[in-house]
């Protein structure tokens, strides 16, 4: 969910762009990290680990920990917390190590 009212900050409206997560059509602000757009849409589970298939999501939000990996436009292991959202991005939940095509 987006913050509607804040006592100190204002957030620019930004340009909304369409993208998909696991085939589902969603909207997010152009240029915000993919993971922020997913959170704004209520999506917090982004992948599953490769050994025990444990769910994975955000942790550090600054590209340090690799907890937020997803497959973006076919490229696996993209850190969604530091990758800006673009129009038409195809994001899929990454299960395991991902496949390099």
């Amino acid at each position: 969910m987006r913050i509607e009212q804040h006592p100190i900050l204002t957030f620019p409206a930004g340009k909304m762009v369409k993208f998909t997560f696991d085939g589902k059509e969603l909207y997010g602000k152009e240029g915000e990290p993919i993971v922020a757009a997913l959170h704004a849409n209520g999506i917090k589970v982004i992948g599953h680990s490769h050994n025990k298939h444990r769910p994975r999501g955000l942790y550090c939000a600054i590209g340090n920990c690799s907890s937020c990996l997803a497959t973006v436009n076919g490229e696996p292991n993209v850190r969604t917390c530091i990758t800006p959202l673009c129009e038409g991005m195809v994001v899929t939940m990454q299960n395991g190590k991902g496949v390099i095509k």
Binding site: M1, I3, L9, F11, H39, L58, C60, A61
Partner: peptide
């Protein structure tokens, strides 16, 4: 820090 980044930089709860 992640929580701060989401809410204070990107305006997402």
């Amino acid at each position: 820090g992640a929580v701060q980044t989401l809410m204070n930089v990107y305006g997402v709860k």
